[in-house]
């Protein structure tokens, strides 16, 4: 009787959480495909063949948390050590989502490319061993967006 409720929540968390994660990855892949023609580089100076007419700082951020089931699994894994597979997709999708949002920010302001991209992770709160608390991470992507001086300045 006492075990019934948490088990139910665990199962709900597992099914909905896995479904949401899958859908998020599909959306990321689709949007990454669309953004393929937009140059995003992490060099700290502009590539030689770029000439900029204007520039500004752009950024994208997202806060994502892990579902209850995966937090419990991660908590158990923490006892024996080793690779925590449930956390890896969380950080991966947060990071990719942040980069996509940065690109959207740059595009909506009419910029052609982003360089000097930096990624930053910050932990919002602590999740305890038994899966309680928020396992939220914030991912921030920022860079300098530029508008090319001539339309074909970047032609290869």
């Amino acid at each position: 009787m006492n075990f019934g409720m948490p088990l139910l929540i665990l199962m709900i968390a597992y099914f909905i959480g896995t479904h949401l994660e899958k859908r998020h990855f599909q959306s990321i892949l689709k949007r990454e495909d669309e953004a393929r023609g937009f140059p995003v580089v992490s060099f700290d100076t502009m590539p030689d063949n770029w000439t900029a007419s204007r520039s500004d700082l752009v950024s994208g951020s997202v806060v994502i948390s892990l579902d209850y089931f995966k937090r419990v699994i991660a908590g158990l894994r923490g006892l024996i050590g080793g690779r925590i597979k449930t956390y890896e997709p969380l950080l991966d999708r947060a990071r990719r989502e942040a980069v996509l949002r940065m690109i959207e920010d740059a595009r909506s302001q009419g910029y052609d490319a982003v360089f000097n991209v930096r990624l930053e992770t910050s932990r919002l709160a602590n999740a305890t061993r038994n899966g309680k608390g928020t396992a939220g991470v914030e991912m921030l992507a920022y860079g300098t967006a530029v508008k090319f001086a001539s339309r074909f300045a970047n032609a290869q």
């Binding site: 929540i9 709900i12 968390a13 948390s65 892990l66 579902d67 928020t134 921030l140």
Partner: peptide
Amino acid sequence: MAGLKNIVGGELKGYTELLSDSRKEAT
């Protein structure tokens, strides 16, 4: 809201907004 969302995981939109607004203010 975030506590509820925390059960199934995914984006915590309230926090995303809060942090980006705050970052804008700092800037």
